[in-house]
């Protein structure tokens, strides 16, 4: 049975392009042109994933994200334009899995969908505990981090930060999510902690910290651990 993707997009052209591109990849596509329609389809057509465009005529989507998150861990990807930064971050913090900036290529879209689907069900199944890419290997169970086969020594906070990114590998994790989950609610605005610790992590893990391969920066939003 093919996976069902709900595309919420009010622009007909983009909707058509996304629909046919996803159909070619073997997805079953249902579409909605407004939030209210999307809410009805989420309840009744049981999609396996949602692609939610920002700037719909009837609202900003926060309500939809909350509603979805209350009931399931249905993967939800935000599709936003560049001038919708604040809204995008709000929806990510509300529980959306990832985002994609317009204009995007179909390749990027499919990569995001693959990552989101890989994480599907992480709330029930054991979380991702092993991450390997190129010469980097991270095992959360044994707390072992290897770079080119050599163990990397991390402080407890550095490890906590890295572990949080590994659990969401391939997906963006917002500043607020990292700060509250690693340092605590009281530190949710202390972005400079994040900058300093991420700098330390990059120095230990990356070959070229100024052009990272693993710990990617999503400017103004958060960080992403590369999976490909």
């Amino acid at each position: 049975m093919s996976l069902r993707v709900l595309v919420v997009e009010d622009d007909r052209e983009i909707r058509t392009v996304m629909q046919s591109a996803l159909a070619v990849e073997g997805f079953e596509v249902v579409t909605a042109v407004s939030l209210s329609e999307a809410q009805a389809l989420v309840r009744h057509s049981a999609p396996d994933m949602v692609l939610l465009d920002l700037g719909l005529p009837d609202g900003d989507g926060t309500e939809l994200v909350r509603e979805v998150r209350q009931r399931s861990n249905l993967p939800l990807i935000i599709v936003s334009a560049r001038d919708q930064e604040a809204q995008k971050i709000r929806l990510l913090d509300a529980g959306a899995d990832d985002y994609l900036s317009k204009p995007f290529s179909i390749g990027e879209l499919l990569a995001r969908i693959r990552v989101a689907l890989r994480h599907r069900g992480t709330a029930l199944e054991p979380a991702v505990t092993l991450h390997e890419l190129d010469d980097l290997s991270i095992n959360l169970g044994t707390r072992l981090v290897l770079r080119a086969g050599q163990p990397v020594h991390l402080t407890p906070t550095e490890f906590k930060l890295l572990a949080r990114l590994v659990r969401s590998a391939g997906r963006v994790v917002t500043h607020r999510q990292l700060l509250t989950e690693v340092w605590g609610e009281a530190f949710s605005a202390h972005t400079h902690y994040l900058r300093l610790y991420m700098g330390q992590l990059r120095a230990k893990i990356e070959r070229e910290p100024a052009e990272p391969r693993h710990l990617l920066t999503e400017i103004g939003v958060g960080y992403r651990l590369a999976t490909a």
């Binding site: 900058r195 991420m198 990617l216």
Partner: peptide, 17 residues
Amino acid sequence: LHRDWESVEEIVGAALA
């Protein structure tokens, strides 16, 4: 401006990407 504490290394990294 939406100012925050930012790392030059990160901004350079994102621009290079």
